[in-house]
Design a binder for these strands. Sequence first.
RNA 1: UCCCCAGUAGCUCAGUCGGCAGAGCAAGUGGCUGUUAACCACUGGGUCCGCGGUUCAAAUCCGUGCUGGGGAGCCA
Length: 459
Amino acid sequence: MERIKIKKLLASDSEMGRVTVKGWVRTRRDSKGFSFMELNDGSCLGNIQIIADNTLPNYADALSITTGSAISVTGKLIPSPGKGQKWEIHADSVEIVGQAPEDYPLQKKRHSDEFLRKIAHLRSRTNKYGAMFRIRSEMSWAIHNFYREKGFRYLHTPIITGSDCEGAGEMFRVTVLDPVASGKTGKADYAGDFFGQEANLTVSGQLSAEMFALALGDVYTFGPTFRAENSNTSRHVAEFWMVEPEMAFCDLQGNMDHGEELLKYLVTHALEFCSEDMNLFTSFVDKGLQKVLNTLLNETYERINYEDAVDLLLKSGREFEYKVEKGMDLQSEHERFLAEEYFKKPLFLMNYPRGIKPFYMRLNDDGRTVAAVDLLVPRIGEIIGGSQREERLEMLEKRMEEMNLPRENYWWYLDSRRFGSVPHSGFGMGFERLLMLITGVTNIRDVIPFPRTPGSIDF
RNA sequence: UCCCCAGUAGCUCAGUCGGCAGAGCAAGUGGCUGUUAACCACUGGGUCCGCGGUUCAAAUCCGUGCUGGGGAGCCA
């Protein structure tokens, strides 16, 4: 008989004569004459209650079913006389598909996130992580929906790259050379390597995306990104997913409009299409989450120049551990003060000093600042980082010279400024940080299936 | 990478001044009940993170390493 998803059964508005469900048992409770089981199949947060009478031919088997076991049940969907659930299945047959022995690590009680991280291969069988990864899936679709509706083209930029996108951040090397052998000679033989030159995992698809924005108009990438920084924080992983829109004929204001629209769309989508799972997070993970989500949805995001933000911090009278200094990048505590205490809502910080930003950001008319923009949100900090790109060939070349970037490595990038260059803008949004924001989960390792961090690549 | 904290039963944790290794939950067995983080009783379960040191005696004090957590830097 064809399997039916529990999500569908729980949403039913009438009895069903004969259905088959398959899933994993969360808990079993016995009576003398019958046994109750809570069955979950991952289709939704809720379980369906199974009742098995001792008149079943294999009732002894049913009594051996343990937490974590996989079973297949056929029976009638009937209104439950007990409290706590609308429907239950009165079983005509219960078949054990896969028994889980007593050392099954998940108990029918709350486990710590730290413990569940050590059994990341099983944690998605818990309520919280099941909900998390359903939301993660739904948010991925929402991103594609958003861009498709807006006429953006989905672009697949390379994972392996020869270019060092921003000259910032440590990169993972990609090689077929034997590290032991190359250690003997004392230096790497790139000419003998697969690509004949140094190759790395991408830290951003931006430069490639710019080329396609200048052809297809509006494009976006959404894929894995790699940073080999030795960052040990709750907001960093070595492999993460990033959304990077790139828009032709778009200035900094348009860039911010787009970021705000995207974020609001995604929050709306989560609340509309993941309401049951979202409810778990607003109720149990973070009591203040609903308020944060309301703010994200209903407030107009602040837009403030870097220099004005620095003035504001200096005048705040607030004692910071690190002094606020003009020309320096803001510290985490400064960003948090602005987003969480001063404005109490998301804010775009724009027009940073040129000295602390990469070469491709457009130089403003004041000559001191560039058209950079970061979106800061409460708790997470920076969730979006972007800029209007420098579209003027001479200015771009000058900036590259200042930063000692070899022009020949970027010949193709510079070509885009020689042939029909136009103002354009874009940004990167960390997908995991988005998930943290909308679920209230505070550790990035808990929003990605198998996190990769320094010294840790299990699973 | 730096600063701080932690590591004791399957899980969460207590363990006082250095003096016999503990609780709750889970698991196993039995009982009871349209049950629902069921309930009641009994039972089993330990490399006190590893290594070294101090001491008559170390879970406890000292050193060191490993692992995890929080914060910082870097960033998304």
